[in-house]
Every structure is written in structure tokens, then in C-alpha cells.
């Protein structure tokens, strides 16, 4: 399993609306497939994605099994001050994968 990929501009001007991109390695097992013996492969997906900036939620997403493997998101954020973006992916098994990226706002 590789680390999640996040793309945040290093710098921005106060009041800028910036583009954020994230990509994480995950099979997103839908729970609708069967194995060779005909048994249903249990569902195991990332069901929640959250992006915070300095502790406040900017954007989040509830994911269903129809999201493709290796979930990709692109979204926007308005930045008024320097700080840190925190990205969190919650797996069906309860585990949370986190990643952080700082931005300098002038």
C-alpha cells in the first residue's frame, strides 16, 4: 500500500480559491462481487473522505461502492491565512488514513 497522494499549492494569496487533488490506493471492494467458489467477497471501501484547513472542515464526501478503485478527488478551498490542510480517509474497517500539507498564504 502506497502513501496517499495529495496536491496542494505551496503558496497562495489571501482570498485565493485554490485547487486540491487527492488520490489514494484502495481496491474499493464493492461487496457485489463473487469469488471463484461463488461466495460474495465482503464489502471493504473507503466510506468517508474529509478535508480540514486549520481544524475546520472545508470539504467532505460520503463514498458508496460505486466510487472507482483508487479514489480520486478534486475540489476547491478558499484560503485567507497560512496553515495546514489535513486529509482523512475512513475505511469500512474503522481505520483512518491521514495526510497533511502546509500552505503559505501571503
Amino acid at each position: 500500500m502506497s502513501k496517499p497522494r495529495v496536491k496542494v499549492p505551496k503558496k497562495a494569496a489571501a482570498g485565493d480559491v485554490i485547487t486540491l487533488k487527492t488520490l489514494i490506493s484502495h481496491t474499493m471492494e464493492s461487496g457485489q462481487r463473487k469469488d471463484k467458489d461463488g461466495a460474495v467477497i465482503p464489502r471493504k471501501i473507503i466510506n468517508k473522505f474529509v478535508c480540514e484547513f486549520n481544524g475546520n472542515i472545508v470539504f467532505s464526501c460520503d463514498l458508496d461502492p460505486a466510487i472507482a478503485a483508487n479514489p480520486y478527488f478534486e475540489f476547491k478551498a478558499k484560503v485567507n491565512e497560512s496553515g495546514t490542510f489535513k486529509f482523512m480517509w475512513t475505511d469500512d474497517d474503522g481505520s483512518v488514513i491521514e495526510s497533511e500539507k502546509a500552505i503559505e498564504v501571503a
Partner: peptide
């Protein structure tokens, strides 16, 4: 290169 999910594999290869 960011949107290309194949790069997840390349990064795994680097590790």
C-alpha cells in the same frame, strides 16, 4: 502525472 493512478504503483516501486 498527479491524476494518473499508475503513479501510485511507481511510488510503491520507489519504496
Amino acid at each position: 502525472s498527479f491524476e494518473n493512478p499508475g503513479m501510485l504503483g511507481v511510488e510503491q516501486g520507489e519504496e
